[in-house]
Amino acid sequence: MKRCHLAYAVCAVTLLGAGMGASPAVAAHRTYVVHQGESIQKAVNSARSGDTVLVLSGTYKESVTIRTPGVTLRGMGGSTVIKPGAKHAKKSGKAAHKGRKAFPTCAEAGNGICVLGTKTRNVRGVTVADLKVTGFSHAGVFGMATDTLTVRGVQSVKNGVWGIAQERSVHSHIYGNYAQGNGDAGVFLANTIKEEAGAADAGQTLVERNRLEGNRIGVTVRRLRDLTVAENRITGNCAGVFVVGDENKPKAGHLEVAANDISSNNKTCPKTDRLPVLQGSGIVLTGTEKTVVDGNRVTGNRGKSPMSGGIVLFKSFVGVTSDQNRISDNTLDSNSPADLINTETRSKGNTFEHNACRVSKPAGLC
């Protein structure tokens, strides 16, 4: 076995054959090591599928875009910090001169790390792990048109909109992250952000074992189906979990919110164009169908917002009912104005079973 060193401390392994002469060399996956003061993006641009970009401890003032499938971007934990760099220079008039729309780069859009496919092909198998992303005006980590994206061990703190976000993506695994103090959701998942459309299949995306604190909302799932939000610790936000649909078809839902610990999400956040004032909401379903909410511990979520309470089925602002949702085997305590709330007077087939709670609106749901 022979080791060699290239730029960014690329390590490759050459395997030598035995017996009747040497077999062809087998190219091994490489690791690009980035030191403080060097460019993460330059290393990412050099990486090929299966390679790792290892970013050592330090502060790196840049945004990073990954478009190559199978690349891993990994830091050393919270000591690897990615912050905004100098404002991206304005694009030259070259693209406009050719009559093409110039799309913003990751930095221009205010994002820290972007994992981007195309309109016709998802980028597969990218991993972002073990680093801190903070201070960006939009999202800490943003994925669009991805397949089997993994985000793990990331600290996404005090970004302007989302901690970790994705759209038009499938088969994602978002786990073991810490999202704190972000302007909107700690974790945000949507079919598409810039247009109204029916709910998309998220391909068994899994959001699990994250700690989400002090954001506007812990987890927002918007216009999606076929995913699971499980075993997360969600506290100190204005609202814990939002599952949101609209008037388009297929409806949002056919997903699971399970075994989460959702407590004291009692910050107050001002109203927006889409939502009223938020305070004291544990889990909110609005305009959804066939969503299973089971085995969660929901405690101490208290407020005076229209959506305040432990687990709330709330009428959709566009008049879409929430139908055939199952709320079962949850433990609820000290939520106000009630542990279980169903405002869906026109809905069909919603069930409340085996929940341990004290107060419901209307009475009889506990």
Rank of each mutant, 00 (worst) to 15 (best):
G50F: 03
K83F: 03
Y175F: 09
D226W: 07
T146C: 13
S360V: 04
A129T: 10
G163M: 03
V44H: 05
T68W: 01
S347M: 06
G253N: 11
K94W: 07
E353I: 15
V277S: 07
C114N: 00
V133D: 07
T288Q: 08
A95P: 02
C106N: 03
C114Q: 01
N215P: 06
L275Q: 08
I66H: 03
I174F: 07
L275M: 10
R100Q: 12
E344R: 08
I113G: 01
V293F: 04
C4S: 14
T351L: 11
S156P: 08
P306C: 09
T272N: 06
P276T: 05
G85F: 09
L212F: 06
S137K: 15
E289G: 02
D323C: 12
V207I: 13
T120M: 07
E196Y: 09
I283M: 04
D294A: 13
F352Y: 15
P337G: 08
V292G: 00
V71R: 02
K249F: 15
V115K: 04
S46A: 13
N237D: 15
D51Y: 08
F136D: 01
S172T: 15
H35M: 08
S63Q: 01
P84A: 10
G198M: 10
G37A: 08
K348N: 15
T192Q: 13
N260M: 07
I217M: 05
A356D: 15
T148S: 15
L275E: 10
V219I: 11
T286F: 12
M307I: 12
P362I: 04
A28Q: 13
I113P: 01
N260W: 05
L189M: 13
G143N: 06
P84F: 10
